[in-house]
């Protein structure tokens, strides 16, 4: 007879694994990937591929030659970071900038802390913010969406994001009403064009300027529902995040609709949906207890709105999530799960 194995219980294991979780996330991002390819064509394919390959390469190289430890690139987490990084940049970003972003995400934000699980911040967001600060021009020149099969090729033309346009014009003293109705005259590539913020349906579908993966709220929500069903993410962070954005911007809007735009606009524009469902829910860098996750989502929402409305940047999702990432350990200490048997005090 063979030697018997003696180990502590439990003697069986569910079939959950890091791989399953990570490829589940990849699967959930497919709708958003398709939308980005639809609106930005081959540019999207290029950015996605380069980002994913670069992220996986850096992880492999660092583990193989620097750490000389076990290789984990097939666990899918580098692929997730790669896709998320691509989702967070404009479709016309030069290749070398993407590679720098991938290096910062994987090399600095992930591997230097000890790899998957030990990174305090979401790697893709660190990469993105690094690029935003280092290459502000390239990172904020957005190609106009140019749907596949739409006929005309408008490749060279860039346009603003709705959020950026709104913020700039509000600064200039115009009212929300005026901006939405009459649009903005702007000089693009030497020509004067009229930019109009798209209507909500277009925004919801993704027909607006923005980073690759953030444009279509619908595609992102489909992916999120999948992740919720598979229990890859929990509802607490998305609900608290979206809820606090709606309430906060709603209050401002009620105070003065001329200078504060309505909550719906905030929900469907910018990187909010992408951030809420795919980055604020990153398990590694967020709190663990349900209560803690609610607090986390709430904090993200409030900071996002503050930056969007009063901050220097038109968009605050990345900063908000990174700031709250920093608080995650503290939140874990302060908000414990409900213990069994604690409700009855004898």
């Amino acid at each position: 007879m063979n030697l018997l194995t003696v180990s502590g219980s439990p003697h069986i294991h569910g079939d959950n694994s890091i791989k399953k979780i990570m490829y589940g996330v990849v699967f959930a991002m497919i709708p958003a990937i398709l939308v980005s390819i639809y609106f930005f064509g081959l540019d999207a394919v290029k950015v996605l591929l380069i980002s994913v390959i670069a992220c996986m390469f850096f992880e492999w190289a660092i583990q193989k030659y620097l750490i000389k430890g076990p290789l984990t690139i097939n666990d899918g987490s580098a692929m997730v970071t790669g896709i998320l990084l691509a989702f967070n940049v404009p479709g016309n970003l030069p290749v070398w900038i993407i590679i720098i972003g991938a290096f910062v995400s994987i090399g600095i934000a992930k591997m230097s802390f000890g790899g998957l699980g030990k990174n305090p911040f979401n790697p893709a967001l660190v990469g993105r913010v690094f690029l935003l600060i280092s290459f502000p021009v390239q990172m904020t020149s957005w190609p106009k969406p140019n749907p596949l099969f739409a006929g005309k090729v408008l490749d060279a033309i860039t346009g603003p994001t709705p959020l950026g346009n709104l913020k700039g014009e509000l600064r200039g003293g115009r009212t929300v009403q005026d901006i939405l109705e009459h649009g903005t005259k702007m000089i693009v590539d030497g020509k004067e064009v009229l930019y109009k913020i798209p209507d909500y349906v277009q925004e919801l579908l993704g027909n607006m300027g923005g980073s690759l993966g953030e444009i279509s709220a619908v595609a992102l929500i489909i992916g999120a529902i999948y992740m919720l069903c598979r229990r890859i993410i929990t509802w607490q962070i998305p609900v608290a995040y979206l809820g606090s954005v709606i309430v906060f911007t709603g209050i401002l809007w009620l105070i003065d609709p001329n200078i504060y735009i309505n909550p719906l606009f905030h929900l469907v524009t910018g990187g909010l949906m992408l951030g809420v469902f795919f980055m604020a829910t990153d398990m590694v860098s967020t709190p663990m207890s349900p209560k803690g996750q609610l607090i986390f989502g709430l904090g993200c929402g409030v900071i996002t709105v503050i930056i969007r409305v009063w901050g220097a940047y038109p968009e605050g999702v990345s900063f908000a999530i990174l700031i709250m990432n920093a608080f995650a350990p503290l939140i874990n200490k302060g908000f414990k799960p409900k213990r069994f048997g604690e409700t009855l005090k004898i």
Binding site: S7, H13, I18, I21, G114, L116, G117, P337, G341
Partner: peptide
């Protein structure tokens, strides 16, 4: 055989399944 031990990815699965509400 047990599966290979990896880093904790802080997924909180263990917390949500604990019937005693522990971490």
């Amino acid at each position: 055989e047990r599966m290979a031990v990896k880093n904790c990815i802080r997924c909180a699965n263990c917390i949500s399944v604990c019937p005693m509400g522990l971490e």
